[in-house]
Design a protein around this nucleic acid. Structure first.
Lengths: 356, 356
DNA sequence: CTGAAAGCGCTTACAG
DNA sequence: CTGAAAGCGCTTACAG
């Protein structure tokens, strides 16, 4: 009991060679060992609560069993509910495979940080890297790109800002097509969102989806409202304030389609204020499925496009582990499809355009 | 160039013993080596872009150079703006000392997870651990407690739910006292917040602060409104809806003091709606300094209590490194004082109760 | 101030 | 199916 439990100690107690214990402990080699021996060894390990020390294992295999999550602005990235879900999926899937996520913060003092990152990369701090928001300097991107380790970036929209890296892409086209199928012809529609690159990129995809469905979108109106604050934390209030001032314009539509749930909810707040019944007098569609985020509301109401971020995290983990195992870090793209979730704000009972 | 750059390679090129190179590379031992030798070796390391491999270093020193951040619900913890700032401070301070943060998720399937965590602990996945929200099972807490590694938990409020662990405590008493000094006598005050344990615990401290200032608080009214959604994401809307319905009651006060900025901002929204001028007709105080969170607003307006979470992260990192270095993981408590930031919602120009 | 050597706890060809 | 042995790339007493 006094001696530190090591593989040698286990081997001694089991009366076998350390290599036999090692083989039992690794799933890839466990099959080599006879069931009898294996049982005996496992029993001893369990009794002594023995787990192989990862730093020793790391050292000898040359793997760190870590994936680095590189972020330019941790406090921004992490607070995004969608990104947090992604991290959760990533973590869980990795942990199930004896890997963990290491946070790497790259924020202040560009020059200095750059060196730090390069230093971290050279010290082999992780077997692969995941890029959060692409707020990285060109040089870091370049160095990452040149390194032979697998690197995967998360991508929400079509324009690939991370050329040269493998990407997991959140693909909303199918969900948008789904929505289009459910919209009766002749409905007056406005796409309403804050005046931002994100809104426009989503609108472009909404139109692309219509196009794929052979639906004419020339009649869809576009309403972009200016915002001083870009954080999603201010999104609902921004939308509310805009909608209150422009209620006359908005109430002229049958359906208001928004790039985010916060926008849709803010507009719904304003409609209610004006005595209207959103979901009856006027339909709303959002995006992100924020209502099912823990603690948000017990009664989700908003019809929404649900981006499968937790799944995207799991997919990222699997791709990463695969690339590490195979040693092939070549560029790959995987799409994770968003799902349309109809709720009361745009009920299923609306007579659809076509059979679904 | 073909050979992997290792310490032996550097030693060969420098014509010295590997141990000399090792000593140069470690700040603790660098002083042993003559300046001349050191310069020469450093130059060679730089030229070859050599960094010692941490897994080898880990293995030989028995340290992982990692701090585990254990969270029960990653997606909840990480999205809290305050917690994200804490993580940022923690990460940066650790990185400055060649440490990094490893995320450890402990969410689903309690029983199974428990074993996983115990397994991780036994594999020596980190040199110390930070507990996020204390959503851990009793057994895990117990095992953590028994392990000899340093463990630090973050604590926002007085009731110490993590007995037995070192704690970094966010202490708001000074900020509350500061506020009390600035409140003229005779002001009609209500403390308004969602009906929650958090609100009540903060109110208790607000009263404690008054007491320390020898101010009678029997006249402060308490208004707790029910909420269905507990997430801060719904906080502003919850407060707004409550305030709209109770505007008559609220407008009777000179000052509304709230446990969070979202509550205060929601109330301010409602006051404006009722044609009142918050900050002139009626004063507001919030907490968390959310307005300076990136992208929230270019013009912070709300007087608020600013909890120094980023600093708390740095303090945690330093305490952790100290405990690791000294091998003394005994329980410690460090307070990080919140700061009151007066802004327009409760201007400094109000004639204060006493000289400050 | 520097060198020679042992060793950290595993894994993995290589034999048998 | 199992054992004996080499070795991963560093650090650190121990000498000198």
């Amino acid at each position: 009991m006094a001696a530190k439990t090591t593989i040698n100690e286990i081997a001694r107690l089991a009366g076998v060679n350390p290599s036999t214990v090692s083989r039992v402990l690794n799933s890839a080699t466990a099959g080599m060992i006879s069931t009898e021996q294996r049982k005996k060894i496992e029993a001893i390990c369990d009794k002594l609560n023995y787990r192989p020390q990862i730093s020793a294992r790391s050292f000898v295999t040359g793997k760190t069993y870590k994936i680095g999550l590189i972020s330019g602005y941790l406090e921004i990235d992490l607070t995004q509910p969608l990104f947090a879900l992604y991290v959760k999926g990533l973590c869980n899937q990795l942990q199930a495979n004896n890997y963990t996520v290491t946070l790497i913060s790259v924020n202040t003092e560009e020059k200095k940080r750059e060196d730090e990152i390069l230093s971290l990369l050279r010290s082999k701090i992780a077997d692969g890297y995941v890029l959060g928001a692409i707020l990285l300097t060109e040089k870091i991107k370049q160095v990452l790109h040149q390194s032979k380790t697998p690197i995967i970036s998360l991508n929400f929209h079509a324009p690939y800002d991370a050329e040269g890296f493998s990407t997991v892409i959140i693909d909303d086209i199918q969900a948008y097509r789904d929505i289009w199928y459910r919209i009766p012809p002749g409905m007056k529609i406005a796409y309403v969102g804050p005046d931002s690159r994100n809104t426009k990129s989503k609108l472009a995809r909404v139109k692309e989806a219509a196009c794929l469905n052979h639906i004419d979108t020339s009649s869809i109106d576009e309403i972009f409202f200016p915002v001083k604050a870009t954080s999603f934390l201010a999104g609902r209030t921004n939308a509310f304030e805009f909608a209150v001032k422009n209620i006359k314009k908005l109430r002229g539509y049958d359906l208001l389609w928004c790039p985010s749930d916060f926008t849709a909810l803010g507009i719904a707040d304003a409609l209610k204020f004006a005595g209207l019944k959103p979901g009856k007098d006027i339909f709303l569609i959002g995006e992100n499925n924020i209502e099912t985020f823990p603690g948000f509301t017990p009664n989700p109401w908003l019809s929404t496009v649900f981006p499968q971020l937790e799944k995207a995290g799991e997919v990222t983990a699997r791709l990463m582990l695969e690339q590490i195992a195979s040693g092939d870090a070549s560029e790959q793209r995987i799409q994770v499809e968003s799902v349309y979730i109809p709720r009361q704000s745009f009920p299923k009972t609306i007579k659809p355009r076509t059979k679904i």
